[in-house]
Amino acid sequence: MTVILDVLGLTLMAFGVGFLLIAALAVWRLPDALSRLHALTKADSAGLTLIALGAVCLKGRLDALLALGLCVVLVALSGATLGHLIARSHLPEDDIE
């Protein structure tokens, strides 16, 4: 069973790293700040979630799920909040209510 969890954990982590690499490439290649922001916030949350799930599989203990799950939730909330604030700062003053 540990071999299956190890393979699953490494696969999940590889996909998570792939998401983060795509996000880095998007930040580098996309034309404007809002497009970059959209790509970064989505891929960041997905990549971190996959890496955390992979780490839980490699650790093999459920107490790691609580700690890593809390990290994922906090990063997702802060990423969404910061993304909203940055996007809002790019709006003209007339559009902000």
Rank of each mutant, 00 (worst) to 15 (best):
M1R: 10
M1I: 12
T2Y: 12
V3T: 09
I4V: 14
I4Y: 10
L5A: 15
L5H: 11
D6C: 13
L8N: 08
L8M: 13
G9Y: 13
L12W: 11
A14C: 14
V17W: 02
V17P: 00
G18N: 03
F19E: 04
L20C: 06
I22H: 03
I22V: 14
I22G: 04
A23R: 00
A26E: 06
R29E: 12
L30V: 12
L30G: 06
L30C: 13
P31Y: 10
D32Y: 10
D32V: 14
A33P: 03
A33E: 01
L34P: 03
S35R: 11
R36T: 10
L37A: 07
A39H: 05
A39L: 09
A39I: 12
T41N: 02
T41A: 04
T41F: 01
D44L: 06
A46L: 07
G47D: 08
L53N: 12
G54D: 08
A55N: 11
V56N: 06
C57P: 08
L58K: 08
L58G: 07
G60H: 13
R61S: 05
R61P: 01
D63Q: 07
A64T: 11
L65F: 13
L66T: 10
A67L: 10
L68Y: 09
G69A: 10
G69V: 09
L70K: 10
V72K: 06
V73Q: 04
V73E: 03
V75R: 01
V75G: 01
A76S: 09
A76N: 07
A76C: 08
S78R: 06
G79M: 11
A80V: 05
A80H: 05
T81A: 01
T81D: 00
L82Y: 03
G83E: 00
I86P: 02
I86H: 02
I86M: 04
A87Y: 00
R88I: 03
S89L: 04
H90A: 14
L91T: 07
L91R: 06
L91H: 08
D95M: 13
